[in-house]
């Protein structure tokens, strides 16, 4: 059999058709995602010399600057802290909802609940963030409302243009994200396991802690990652409600690219942010798998 025959045979086989079918989409992702991601890493080792010109000699100067300048370090740490806080809040608040929809709602009503929870997620993110600015402002909805009712004497100023506002807004925006994976994990739990546990004399609380919770762990891990990874790179929320003290790393990346025209340093900050997120995400996944009892933590979405 010639090589050509082999190729022809492959593309008529089950596997070959699969590869052929996925290739347009895979090629698109390769060209518009993989290539740009590699480019950003490459450029982070260059130096900007003109508007669109670079000195392409390899240098670590950007990394040195990004890691030693206290401003960048502060922004990175703040981003991590905000992300961590937002993730904790959303997942802790989301778990009871996911539990309620999975265990407390009639099967025919479940999809309606999930749909209701996800609708706000599909509306403009920009507008939702802007609304929080309107709600939390000095003359905003919350202050004017509470003043009118007489709960407060003067407007509260600690709720807008700082880190608190960023955390509140992000926690609101990512709430549906956290509910879905936990809900999916809870739905997969075989209900007879819970009955078995009760039959064997475990209390309701102990059943929850020793059966439900470990089986839901993959969902919780997925929820944590799905909230943590995108929030660290959020641009709109810190920009609109964060004020100078609430800015995050994405704002600095944007400044470097569009204002200071220093793409290599912007690229370096982006690469570092991705690296840190990747390390934390992987560590957390390993930890989560362990909590779920080794290989039981299998499928996750």
């Amino acid at each position: 059999m010639t090589f050509g025959d082999k190729i022809r045979r492959f593309f008529r086989s089950e596997q070959g058709v699969g590869v052929m079918l996925v290739s347009p989409t895979a090629l698109y992702a390769l060209l518009l995602l993989a290539v740009p991601l590699v480019a950003i890493v490459v450029i982070s080792f260059w130096t900007q010399t003109g508007v669109r010109d670079f000195d392409t000699t390899f240098t670590l100067a950007n990394y040195k600057e990004a890691l030693t300048d206290p401003l960048y370090r502060q922004l990175m740490l703040r981003s991590l802290m905000v992300s961590g806080l937002v993730t904790t809040i959303t997942v802790v608040l989301a778990f009871p909802i996911a539990y309620f929809v999975s265990f407390g709602v009639k099967p025919e009503h479940k999809s309606l609940w999930i749909f209701l929870i996800t609708i706000p997620f599909w509306t403009s993110y920009l507008i939702r963030v802007f609304l929080w600015k309107v709600i939390l402002g000095y003359n905003g909805v919350l202050n004017s409302g509470l003043l009118a009712v007489g709960v407060i004497e003067e407007p509260m100023s600690f709720i807008l243009y700082n880190v608190n506002a960023v955390v509140i807004t992000l926690a609101h925006a990512y709430a549906p994200f956290a509910i879905l994976p936990i809900f999916v994990a809870l739905e997969k739990i075989d209900r007879s396991l819970l009955e078995a546990s009760r039959d064997l004399g475990e209390s309701r609380t102990m059943t929850f802690l020793r059966v439900t919770l470990p089986l839901a762990a993959p969902g919780v891990v997925a929820a944590v990652l799905i909230v943590f990874i995108p929030t660290i790179g959020d641009y709109v929320t810190p920009r609109l409600v964060g004020g100078p003290g609430g800015l995050m790393i994405a704002n600095m990346i944007q400044t470097q690219f569009l204002r200071l025209n220093n793409a290599p340093l912007g690229a370096t900050l982006a690469v570092l942010a991705m690296l840190i997120v990747a390390v934390i995400a992987i560590a957390f996944m390993l930890l989560g798998n362990k909590a779920a009892g080794g290989n039981k933590g299998g499928r996750r979405k």
């Binding site: 596997q15 996925v22 895979a26 992702a29 995602l33 991601l37 990652l225 995108p230 944007q254 982006a270």
Partner: peptide, 28 residues
């Protein structure tokens, strides 16, 4: 419908923009 070599990795990569911060996609 099909299984092919590297399926999980390829599909995982195609789905990556779902979690990747949009600013990374934008600047790259």
């Amino acid at each position: 419908r099909y299984t092919f070599p590297g399926q999980k990795g390829i599909m995982g990569f195609i789905m990556l923009p779902l979690v990747l911060p949009e600013i990374i996609v934008a600047v790259s």
